[in-house]
Simulated assay, not measured.
Amino acid sequence: MYRKKFLGIFFIFLSLIIVILFSYFKFFGNNKSKIVHIENKEEVYNSNLIKDVEYSTKDKNNNEYFIRADEGEIDFSNPNIIFLKKVYAFIKLIDSREITIVSDFGKYNSENYDTIFSKNVKINYLDNKIAGEYLDFSLERNLMIISKEVSYSNLDNIMKADVIEINIKSKDTKIFMQDQKEKVILKSKN
């Protein structure tokens, strides 16, 4: 009789320990620490989420690139990739004026400084304003590709297109529609 009670209690405790260990490893076992280098400070994070992210760099041609976001999340599979929220970028190109870019989201590559901006992308350059839903900005390729519901305006004109490609170095620009049957819409403000 006592042996049956003892075995019953033993199996209950054993089951409880197994459930506790399983729960611990399920919820806490995959928590990896990450060392992040930001503004000459090293901090250890138990998560891949960082508040108030800032990066700045100069390329080999002395172009300056500054990016800031309210929040960043490091991709554990590729630590050079950081997913950003509420993004602001400032670009000062040599032999050119400043470019500012804002968007709801971004994907920044800290290795080559390429950045993809998405959702409510707004670009300001001199008196030119470009809005769209997607911007692929690459210092490495010297290229900006703005797409999805693109609108462009300056002091004199308003234009609607599907894609605007700008060579950052030469300033050569291509404006086109994805469907060749459709036409770019250009209206004068005057």
Rank of each mutant, 00 (worst) to 15 (best):
K86F: 03
V87L: 08
Y88L: 10
I91F: 13
K92C: 03
K92H: 10
K92D: 07
K92I: 06
L93Y: 04
S96T: 04
S96K: 13
S96P: 01
R97W: 04
E98R: 13
E98Y: 08
I99K: 03
I99M: 12
T100Y: 01
T100E: 08
I101Y: 00
I101K: 00
I101D: 00
V102Y: 02
D104W: 01
D104R: 09
K107P: 01
Y108K: 10
E111T: 06
Y113C: 04
T115Q: 07
F117V: 07
S118E: 14
K122F: 07
K122Q: 11
K122M: 09
D127Y: 10
D127M: 06
K129R: 13
K129M: 09
K129F: 09
I130V: 15
I130K: 05
A131H: 05
A131P: 00
G132V: 05
E133V: 02
L135G: 03
D136W: 05
D136C: 02
F137G: 01
S138V: 10
S138Y: 06
S138L: 07
S138Q: 09
I145W: 06
V150F: 07
Y152H: 11
Y152L: 13
S153P: 01
S153G: 03
M159L: 15
M159R: 06
K160I: 11
A161N: 06
D162K: 11
V163G: 04
V163M: 05
E165N: 10
I166A: 10
I166V: 15
N167R: 08
K169S: 10
S170N: 15
S170I: 12
S170T: 15
D172H: 13
K174Y: 06
I175V: 14
F176D: 07
Q178M: 09
D179G: 05
Q180Y: 05
V184F: 02
I185E: 12
I185C: 01
